[in-house]
Structures are given as structure tokens and as C-alpha cells.
Design a binder for these strands. Structure first.
Lengths: 129, 129
DNA sequence: ATTTTAATTGATAATGTATATCAATAAGAG
DNA sequence: CTCTTATTGATATACATTATCAATTAAAAT
């Protein structure tokens, strides 16, 4: 026996698909509206399990909670420092080792990267024309 | 009156200069050996203050505790996923916006990035020739 | 269909990292 | 030397996440 198909698991997977780069808390709050018995621990567990099995993506970030993503192919994000929203980018870091002249014997496996700035909406609100 | 020159502050600044990309805990443990009265809160406070005033660098990371750096000019790091050590790189991300074709109205202010892999020492230990 | 089993759940405690609080202390201006 | 207030130490609190464990339940075995 291996992985079971629980409703909680389906609910978590569905929520990640519907929401836009949600964190665990946001996934929980969405599900709990319709299924008030679900536990936050179950949400965390399933987010991790689905990410390990590559059914969803996990975005670990330097600040604030981890985010989850219905896209599973590696890609990079812009984070608005005002509203916190994530935006997908077209950045191509497929060969991160090419970004360095000297790796000093270090074997590079991947690049964790996140662009920080301010999104169009927040810019507009800060300085409306 | 503004910023005061406390011994605790000097101890924290010195520890960051002596240690190699330490986290707050490591700074605390170094100082507490000679100054057993220092509080961990003081270490955190001074690390943040020194970083704000650009006397040390702060490296916020997606995993584990923040690290501090005697180098203050922006630069990027390699993190060994085995031993956790950080290594300085020669990566140049001075104009992160040039890495994207389309920014969709987003204003990019900086790029948070960290190369992940395995360092020469840990590679050697895993597969000694 | 019923039993068996182990994966999963819910509730909650515990962890790790960091900040907030606040009375006591002390750096440095006058 | 006195006074002001930045700073400290001790501790509580915050926050995100994982660990624990008895109870439940999906699905395999009978």
C-alpha cells in the first residue's frame, strides 16, 4: 500500500491550482470555508507531499512563508515588496554555472533566485498620475 | 545623542569580521565564551543595526537562519547543501532587469539569489578517490 | 462483504528563528 | 557630576513549520 487518495489531499491540490502562488495559511483558509474540520497540519503535510511528488511547485523564500505553485517546471518569480504578490518571469537560469567565471571546485546544482521590486498596481497607488 | 559605542556592539561587529558568514547563533556563541553576560537579544539587535548602517552585510536566505557578512558591497553566494557553508562568488547581477525579456510593468530593484550545490571538501568526503 | 493494515488525519505540543516588551543600566552630552 | 536616553538583559511573544500520537479510514487481502 502506498499513497492514498484522500479528500483532504485533493482539496489541497485543487486549492493550489485555483489560488495564485498561495502560502499554506491561504490554502488552509480557502479549504476551511467548505470543510471546517480540516487541520492545518494536514494542509502542510499535503503541500509538502505534493511538492515532493512534483504535482505542485514549492517556492521557498527569504522572507515570509513558503509559497506553492501549480506550475511545476522550474521558473523564477518577481515579488512585489509592497503587496507581496508573486509574478512569473521569463528568466532563464537553466545553466546557473555559466553565470560564474570561477566556481572554485564547487559543483553548482541550482540557483535560488527571486526578483524584488514593485508591481504596476502598487506603483500606480504610490504615485497616481 | 545618537548611536552609542557599547562594548556589546563592538563585540558583535568584531565577531562578524572574524567568523565566516556566521548566523546570529554562531556570533552569540563566540562572544559568550569571553563575555558570558551578553544577551542573545543584544546580538540580534546589533546585527540588525550594523546591517542597517551598512557596517556589515546581511544575507537573508530561503532556508535556515540569516547569515552576516563582513563584506558590505552587494555580492552573491554559493551555499553547500551538505555542510551549509557559504562561499563568495564573482556573479554580476548589477542590472537584474537585463535578465528578463519582459517585466510587465514591474520595476525591478534587486535580485535575491543564492547558488546551491556541493563544495569541494564535501564532494571529496562523499566520493573519495 | 468483512477483516486487516498501515497511510492519513486532527489536535496539539514542540521547534527554530526572530522580534517585542520593559525595567535597569550606562554612554556620552552638557 | 549630573542628566538624558540609547542600550542592555531577561523574558515573553510571534510566526512558520514540523513532530507526536491516538483515532480514523482507504484500499488491499481474505
Amino acid at each position: 500500500m502506498n499513497r492514498r487518495n484522500t479528500i483532504q489531499r485533493r482539496l489541497v491540490a485543487d486549492a493550489v491550482r485555483v489560488l495564485d502562488h498561495p502560502d499554506a495559511e491561504t490554502v488552509y483558509e480557502k479549504i476551511v470555508q467548505e470543510h471546517p474540520h480540516i487541520s492545518k497540519a494536514t494542509v502542510y503535510r499535503n503541500l509538502n507531499l505534493l511538492a515532493e511528488q512534483n504535482e505542485i511547485g514549492k517556492i521557498s523564500t527569504a522572507e515570509g512563508a513558503d509559497r506553492y505553485d501549480c506550475r511545476t517546471r522550474p521558473h523564477y518569480h518577481l515579488r512585489c515588496r509592497v503587496c507581496g504578490k508573486l509574478f512569473d518571469t521569463d528568466a532563464n537560469f537553466d545553466r546557473p554555472e555559466t553565470l560564474l567565471k570561477d566556481t572554485n571546485g564547487f559543483t553548482i546544482e541550482k540557483l535560488n533566485a527571486e526578483f524584488i521590486g514593485i508591481c504596476a498596481d502598487c506603483k500606480e497607488k504610490e504615485a497616481p498620475h
